[in-house]
Structures are given as structure tokens and as C-alpha cells.
């Protein structure tokens, strides 16, 4: 929604997994963009394709998964068709990544200092001594006490929250312009989650780093993101400014998702829920993938698949917002 030239642009992305029983389509027709410095939240149930989108952007889809169609552009240049070595130079340098579980994302046999300096010397024209000095700075910046001593500690000597801070330092230390954060707080204690999100938000703002924040925690999105994309069964169901999507969702699925957040200011007898479960990739229904669960379903939904269309404040992939004349 920003007027600036987008930093990242994803156009009609389709990711397929060829299997023995046929090709599974994990992502289909996913399009969005992120402006410099902007935070895009990506939400949805497990298996909706949120993490897959992140993996496709950093070029680390698990084989045999592959990009079958579409383009990913960084600063207007395609990065989805680069060779491994070219893409490697972009990872860490242009696009940083943060993963879910800080207990497993740090190599247990290297000190945090070694991991930070190797990342910096790989991407930046600096010598090891300078890298070490900056590594201490980064550890201080992410709030690790006594950084100058802790730099020679191994990951197991840190708590989970501290390790995620180290991971954040690792993702940011080569000063990328985009961070893909894949559920960065899911594995942490609730009390630590807020701190880590606040840190991430502050650093992104200070450094002007854009962020794609994948999560299923609506609270985190509401607090952090500028815009939100709601994903369902490998497609974007709705995308728009965070305030609109959270308060006045247009797509029935987003509305259901937002309604399922328990309100804190009043007691409710029963928590709202969406009936049924998201379809498996091998059995995505015809028409709108959400139609078997949708409270507002009508005849067209079972026949034709809706693309994103203007729904006033947001864009939603729902026939409720189709212009008067049905095409086709």
C-alpha cells in the first residue's frame, strides 16, 4: 500500500511438491509486496503456506519442493531463478532469516562469537578483529548482558530467550534490508515473547529493515505489523492494513480467525471457533478452498476460485466482493 518502490515483490508464486502420487500444490498464485522498512505480517493456520512462502523467498525450499510459476523480485531484480552461489550471496546480506526454535537454530559446537564473526566476514569487507568488535556490539544491541564476556560462550550456556536474541543478531549483523522471521516467538515463554518482539520491532525500525513476520499469534501481528496477509490453503485470502484486517476483516475466513481471538475486556461463555479443519494439500476443494467451512457460502464459491479483489479497505479473495457482472 506504500507508494515507494517495493523492496520485495512476489508475483503469482506457485510452489509444487512432486510426489509419487501426483503433484501437490503448496502455494498457488501468491502475490504481495513489501516496501522498504515495512512490516508485513503473515498469518494463518498451520499448513496454510506461511513458512513455505518465507522459505521460497530465501531460496531454501526443501527439495523436492520447487517454484513452478511466478517471480520473486528484490529491488526490482528477479531472485527466484538465481544459481545457488548467487543466491547464497543474497542470503544473510540482503535477506536475513530468523527461525522458530532458537534451541535448534544455533550450532551447538560453535561459540556465538564464532557464528557472528563468520557471518560478518562472509558478507562484509572486514577483518576478523573488526568482526569480533562488531559481534560484541551486536550482542549488546540485542540486550545480552556482559556481551564482551558472553561472546565466547556456547549456545547451550544461554536461555531460550537469550538464544533467540543471538539469532536476531545473526540475522541482522550483515545489515540486510529485509528480514524473513518465521514464527520467531512461538517456541519461547510467553513472558519472553513480548520482549523479543519488542526488540525485533525496535531494531527493524532503527535500521530501516523491512520484515516479513510469519506467525499465528494475532497479538504479535496487531502490535508489530503495518500490513497483514491472511493465508489459507496455500493462497492469500486477504491482505490489507493491519487495523482494517484485525477490526473489520472482509474475507469470512479472516473474520473467523479474528473472532477466535479471545477478548480480554469481557467474559465470554464460549470461545468463537471456525468449524472444520483446513483441507490437506492433496484434497483442496474446487472453487474457493474455504467454501466447505464458510458461513457465507453461495453457489459461485463451489465452482470458481476467487482471485484477490478490491473489498474496500482491504483486498480479499472472496466472491462477496465481486463486481456486479460475473465474468466467465
Amino acid at each position: 500500500m506504500s507508494n515507494a518502490a517495493p523492496l520485495l515483490e512476489v508475483r503469482n508464486l506457485r510452489v509444487e511438491f512432486p510426489t509419487r502420487r501426483g503433484t501437490l500444490v503448496a502455494l498457488d498464485d501468491v502475490s504481495f509486496s513489501i516496501a522498504p522498512g515495512e512490516v508485513l505480517g503473515v498469518v494463518g493456520e498451520s499448513g496454510a503456506g506461511k513458512s513455505m512462502t518465507g522459505a521460497a523467498i530465501i531460496g531454501l525450499l526443501e527439495p523436492p519442493g520447487r517454484i513452478a510459476r511466478g517471480e520473486i523480485l528484490l529491488n526490482g531484480k528477479r531472485i527466484d531463478n538465481l544459481r545457488y552461489e548467487q543466491m547464497r550471496r543474497i542470503r544473510g546480506k540482503e535477506i536475513g532469516a530468523i527461525f522458530q526454535d532458537p534451541l535448534t537454530t544455533l550450532n551447538p559446537l560453535y561459540t556465538v562469537g564464532q557464528q557472528l564473526t563468520e557471518t560478518m566476514t562472509t558478507h562484509l569487507p572486514i577483518n576478523p578483529a573488526e568482526a569480533r568488535r562488531r559481534a560484541i556490539e551486536w550482542l549488546e544491541l540485542v540486550g545480552i548482558p556482559a556481551a564482551a564476556q558472553r561472546i565466547d560462550s556456547y549456545p547451550h550456556e544461554f536461555s531460550g530467550g537469550m538464544r533467540q536474541r543471538v539469532v536476531i543478531a545473526l540475522a541482522l549483523c550483515a545489515e540486510p534490508r529485509l528480514i524473513v522471521a518465521d514464527e520467531p516467538t512461538t517456541a519461547l515463554d510467553v513472558s519472553i515473547q513480548a520482549q523479543v518482539i519488542a526488540l525485533l520491532k525496535t531494531l527493524a525500525r532503527e535500521k530501516g529493515t523491512a520484515m516479513m513476520l510469519v506467525t499465528h499469534d494475532m497479538g504479535v501481528i496487531a502490535e508489530t505489523a503495518d500490513r497483514v496477509a491472511v493465508m489459507y490453503a496455500g493462497r492469500i485470502a486477504e491482505i490489507g492494513p493491519v487495523r482494517e484486517v484485525v477490526k473489520h476483516a472482509n474475507h469470512p475466513y479472516s473474520a473467523g480467525l479474528m473472532a477466535s481471538i479471545p477478548p480480554l475486556d469481557r467474559r465470554v461463555e464460549r470461545l468463537a471457533q471456525i468449524d472444520g479443519a483446513m483441507p490437506r494439500l492433496s484434497a483442496i476443494p474446487r472453487g474457493c478452498a474455504y467454501n466447505p467451512r464458510c458461513p457465507k457460502v453461495f453457489s459461485r464459491c463451489a465452482d470458481e476460485r476467487p482471485d484477490l479483489m478490491d473489498a474496500g479497505t482491504t483486498r480479499a479473495a472472496c466472491w462477496l466482493y465481486a463486481s456486479e457482472v460475473p465474468h466467465g
Binding site: L60, R88, I90, R91, G92, T105, T119, T122, A174
Partner: peptide, 9 residues
């Protein structure tokens, strides 16, 4: 995976 995501050779 994280080492790859950091762009290490």
C-alpha cells in the same frame, strides 16, 4: 538450514 540462511559458503 540457518547456516545456509546466513549465506555461509
Amino acid at each position: 538450514k540457518f547456516a545456509r540462511a546466513r549465506g555461509l559458503p
